[in-house]
Structure formats: C-alpha cells, structure tokens
Design a protein around this nucleic acid. Structure first.
Length: 597
RNA sequence: GGUCCGGUAGCUCAGUGAAUAGAGCAACUGCCUUCUAAGCAGUAGGUCAUUGGUUUGAAUCCAAUCCGGAUCACCA
C-alpha cells in the first residue's frame, strides 16, 4: 500500500466529519508534491469547492487542521497554496517504510491470481533474417510477459512461425536455380541469412525477367505475373500443398536452416518461448473452422465458391475467409491458431504482439470470434506497436535500408567494448567476463532504447545517435547499479538484515533522502500501471528517474562517510533498496545489470 | 474517399483534467586528492499544428481545419 492510498481514508473521514460530505477514494486526487513546494503529498482541493461552497484556502486549512488533530503522529505539518493542500508526513513514517521493505528483493511483485495469459510475440517469416522491427516486437513481448507475471498472472510465451506460403517458395526456387547445392555450412553463413540471400536473389531475377518481358511490350502487372520464375514459384506452392515429397523435403531443409539461425539470435538477445506454433500446422484447423462457421450461418459462400463474412452491419466491409480454390488466407490461419491455442491452454487472455499495420486485421479477427460465440473472443487483445523508422523514413528491403538484428547487436556490443576500454575500469576482468560485460551493456542499451518509448507510437531509429550510452539510456541505469554495488562491496555487506539498526536516530531526514524513499515506494504502482496499459515504457521511465535521483543523492551525501552511524545505516538501506528495485525493474525489461562496469 | 493513429525545445521522447509544460541528446559553463565522472550542478532553447468550445482549471476533453502515417487485397 502506498502512502497516497493511506492518506485518502483520512481525507474522506475529514470531509465526512467536517462537512458531512461523502466522497470516494477515486474522487480524490492525491499526488506527490512537486519539488518546488514544501510537502510530500498534495491533495487537490478544487474538486470539493463547488459542492462544499467554501474557498480552497478555507478548505485546505480546515482539512489540514483536522488531519493533524486526528493523527499527529502521521501528519507532521501542512501548507495551503492556491487550491493545493501540501501535506508533510512524519519522518518516522518514511524511515519505517524503508526499514520494512529495503531487503525485500520481490518488492513490487504480487502473489498469483490464478489468471492465465498467453503472450504471442516475435512471429517471424522463414524467408529472411530478423530485423530491427522484430527486435522491438521481441523486447516488447518478452517484457510484457514478465510484467504480467510480476502482477500475479500465469504467462505462457508463444511464437507463431509463418513457415508456409509464396514467400518461402521464392527462396526455395532461387536456391534451386542459383545455389549449386550450397549450404550454410559450406558457405559459413548463419542459416537465416543464408536463406534470406536467396530471397533477395529471387527478387533480383524476377525484376530482370519482368523488365525483359516489358521490353517485349507487356504491361508491368502482366510481366510480373508471367515471368518464368514467378510461374515456377506458384507451381511450387501448389506442389507444396499437394505434399509433393521433394518439395516438402526442400522446404523442411531450408526452414531448418532458418530455425538454426533464429535460435542463435534468440539465445543471444534472451528471447524464449514455451511453445512454438507453425502456420503449416494451423491452416488446416482454420479450414475446418470455416466449415463450422458456414454451418452456423455466420459465413456465407459466393457463387464462385469463395467464403465470406459480412461485417457491414458493424460498419466494416465484407471479408474473405477462404479463397474460391479452397486455399486459406491469412485470416483462415488465424482462426486455426486461436482455436488451437485455446485448446492447449484455456487462457483468460491472449495477447498478440503485432505491428499497428495489422490493426484492421486484428479488429476483424476479434469481431468474427465474437460473432461465432467463441468463449475466448473477449480475451483477445492486440498489443499494437508502431513501426521503427529511419530518419529517412520507413525501412525498405528493396532499397537495402533494413537494419539487420544480428548486425545491430554486434555493433552495440562493439561500441560497449570500445567505451569500456576507453574508461579502463575493469582491466582485471577475464576474457570471458569482458565478453559477457560487453553483451550486457550493448544489449542493455539496445533494449532500453526500444522499450523506453510508448509501444503505440512509431519511433525513429537513428543509427548515428542511437548508440549513445549517456543520459536516458540502459547503460546509465546499469552504471548506477554498479556504482551502488561498489559501495556495498566496500562495506562488505552480505547479510542484508545486518544493516538494520536504530535508524530513528537518523532523523530528521534530508530532502534527497526522503525524495528517494518516496520514489522507491512508487515501484509497485508502476508495475501495475505498466501491466494495465500493456506498456513497458512505464517501467523504463520510472527506473531511469530513480537512477537519476539516486545519482543526485550520491553526489550530495556520502554513504560510507556519513555524519553519524545512524545516517550511514539509513543510507545503506537506501542503497540496498535502490539496487534491488533497479535489478527488479531492469529484469522486467530483459536488461541485465553488472556488478562492475 | 471511409476508418484508425499521430503532430510538445534544433533532434529523440515524457507529460492520460491541476501549481511556473519536463527529461535525454546536441551547444555553452563549472565539478574527479574524498563511496565508480557511463556521473553531478548550471546556462540557453516552447505560439504544446491552427481555430473555436466545455471547465474553477485544457498540451490533456469536444468540434472543425491543416500536416504526416497506417489500413480498407482471393498478399502475409
């Protein structure tokens, strides 16, 4: 329970006793007092003025007096400025809070609720390597899963692999035409990059053939359709659906190369899944789903045999759910996937981490599930995130401006290495320790950069500037952690409980000491807000502000050479609680924190 | 054209009805003989796209307009 929620019942009592007025907690606004005013928490008075017909100044004085009268040990003093009642609480309240919580490494986490949530994220195609956009998706999904766990949910992380369709056939055709049986092993190439190269080769060859045909007088559309390599690809898709053995074999071989590559990347960036789904496995169930919908009369069949749903009553269009040739579309596969996930887990909520370009698709998916009366329809939630753009605009694979995930991680760790060497603080580290540290810092910088922005908003990635390690960044927070650990090491603290002594002697508290305690107190509220909003940036912003406040405190007050023994004990408690929360918060973001850096 | 999202400092972003709109980067000034300077303190930088409305109070809510983006495929 935070202090704000402790204050509210007192205020409600005051309003009742003084004015015989009934207010609920949600009608009260109690916020942390702005630093430029005296006080800890502030009650906004304007909302009562009209109903109680008294001036804010008057109300403030009467409520303030009343609060001090009924609980002088809690309310130390107050002041009224305009419509704001600024309350200063007794130092002992803050000292006690710190004493009770500083050693609790799980501070902020809730006990299990019995709620089951699926978070589906990453969801790659098997025709090209992961890129910057995937990284935002992966870091968001992973972090959201952890935040929901901290809120007491049982979380299942899943990933659906888009492993079938025309795009993978393109890579397969190009490999047959140009590879001469080359493999990732024979070329010493990471599997996903290897396959991605043939996807690029396909497009190059397709364009070449298209231009040739256009030179012979064909229209662009016709030439694209009639190009031999495209014809071959379409034939391959049909063969795949028919289960032609040599096509299936090639498909399996190339996908396995891609998976090997993905595994390396996932492991490196710390992504993990409880279960993988494959579209090649869900689309069949999706077709059966369409049959059921037809029987229910929710779907209807047109003369050409295609199956649709009419969403015009909902203000949307008619939507195709099965092609006239009986093959499945994107939506069909999602039916099957939703059904299969529910059969597997009977989830309460199913979160899809997918880019905002698919808002319409997800809206339609949920709507169709509702119309079919599916029990899980309500639980479908689309965590829609904005695209990552370059200063020049959207990344385009055709123009080669796609930022590759592996390259980016390499670059970040290389910068971490360079900066670490410049500073020269860890010269005694072993080779393995150094490598680990570079990964921790480089990935920390990257993850924080992508998570600090509200997911809903599109964001700009500037390769020139984004590798900054100062200010509002992951390394700043990691540095603060290492700095505190250094203090604790010097003091030889192993048993946290041993720090507790008569901190009451440490009063009165200095402003920065109290500000830090109030900031620490907010952590559980932040986790709750992040979970409710499905928004890890809440945690990122919070932990940055906490680290910044600690650094101010650090430069102002000495911990180990404090003015008194009691002050030293108090500040050690502050250090321990801060370091615990930094570790917890960064863990929720998937960011590791080093003991030294 | 319909629908949805966005527009806040030079740049990247906070701010979700409350006090004088905040951070970081970039620029400039100080601070390492003292717990890690990947840090701290300070200066400068704003017509919160525009106009009107609601409110004790609006960057925040409503309406209109301007600008940018996404989407409305028998692609995934």
């Amino acid at each position: 329970m935070t202090t704000a929620s402790q204050i509210k019942p007192f205020v409600i009592k005051a309003l009742k006793e003084l004015y015989d007025a009934d207010f609920t907690e949600s009608e009260l606004t109690v916020t942390i007092t702005k630093p430029e005013f005296e006080g800890d928490y502030t009650l906004v008075l304007f909302s009562f003025v009209k109903q109680l017909k008294k001036s804010p100044e008057h109300l403030g004085k009467e409520i303030g007096d009343y609060l001090q009268k009924i609980s002088p040990e809690f309310f130390k003093s107050y002041n009224v400025i305009k419509g704001f009642l600024n309350l200063t609480l007794s130092d002992s309240h803050w000292v006690d809070f710190l004493k009770d919580n500083f050693s609790d490494k799980t501070f902020g986490s809730r006990s299990p609720l019995g709620n089951k949530v699926i978070v589906e994220y990453s969801s790659p195609n098997t025709n090209k390597p992961l890129h910057l956009g995937h990284l935002r998706n992966i870091f968001l999904g992973w972090s959201l899963a952890e935040i929901l766990k901290a809120q007491g949910n049982e979380v299942i992380k899943t990933c659906v692999v888009n492993d079938r369709g025309i795009h993978i056939c393109k890579s397969m055709i190009a490999w047959q035409l140009f590879a001469n049986d080359a493999t990732p092993e024979s070329t010493h190439t990471k599997g996903d990059h290897f396959v991605g190269e043939y996807y690029v080769k396909f497009n190059e060859e397709h364009q070449r053939q298209r231009d040739e045909l256009m030179a012979k007088g064909m229209s662009k559309e016709e030439a694209e359709r009639e190009a031999p390599i495209m014809k071959a690809t379409q034939q391959m898709l049909l063969d795949w659906e028919a289960g032609k053995p040599e096509v299936i074999e090639l498909w399996k071989k190339m996908n396995s190369w891609v998976y090997e590559g993905f595994d390396v990347t996932y492991k490196r960036i710390g992504a993990d899944f409880n279960k993988m789904y494959y579209e090649s496995g869900t689309y069949i169930l999706g077709k059966k789903f369409v049959e059921d919908g037809l029987k229910q009369g929710v779907f209807f069949k047109k003369e050409d045999g295609s199956v649709w749903i009419d969403l015009t009553p909902e203000g949307l269009d008619q939507k195709l759910v099965l092609r006239k040739d009986g093959t499945s579309v994107y939506m069909t596969q999602d039916f099957g996937l939703a059904e299969e996930k529910y059969q597997d887990y009977q989830y309460d909520q199913s979160i899809y981490v997918i880019g905002d370009e698919q808002n319409y698709h997800m809206k339609v998916l949920k709507l169709i599930m509702e119309k079919l009366g599916k029990p899980y329809a309500d639980g479908i939630y689309h965590l829609s995130y904005g695209m990552v753009e370059l200063p020049s605009g959207r990344m385009k694979s055709r123009e080669g401006t796609v930022v590759d995930a592996d390259d980016l991680v390499d670059e970040m760790t290389a910068v971490a290495k360079q900066k670490t060497e410049e500073l020269g603080k860890v010269k005694d580290f072993s080779e393995t320790e150094l490598k680990e540290l570079y990964d921790v810092i480089g990935l920390g910088a990257l993850k924080f950069f992508l998570l600090r922005v509200d997911p809903k908003k599109k964001m700009v990635f500037n390769p020139e500037e984004s590798v900054d390690f100062h200010g509002f960044t992951g390394p700043f927070i990691q540095y603060t952690h290492a700095r505190i650990q250094s203090i604790l090491r010097k003091e030889g603290i192993t048993d946290l409980k041993s720090v507790t002594t008569e901190t009451a002697m440490a009063m009165p508290l200095f402003t920065l000491e109290k500000q830090l305690i109030i900031a620490l107190e907010q952590f559980p509220v932040m986790i709750q807000q992040a979970a409710e909003e499905h928004n890890p940036s809440v945690i990122a912003i919070y932990v940055f502000n906490l680290a910044k406040l600690f650094n101010t405190f650090y430069s102002e007050h000495s911990v180990l050479n404090a003015e008194s023994k009691a002050k030293k004990q108090l500040r050690l408690q502050l250090c321990i609680m801060t370091v615990n929360i930094i570790a917890s918060a960064t863990r929720l973001l998937g960011i590791k924190v080093p003991e030294r850096m």
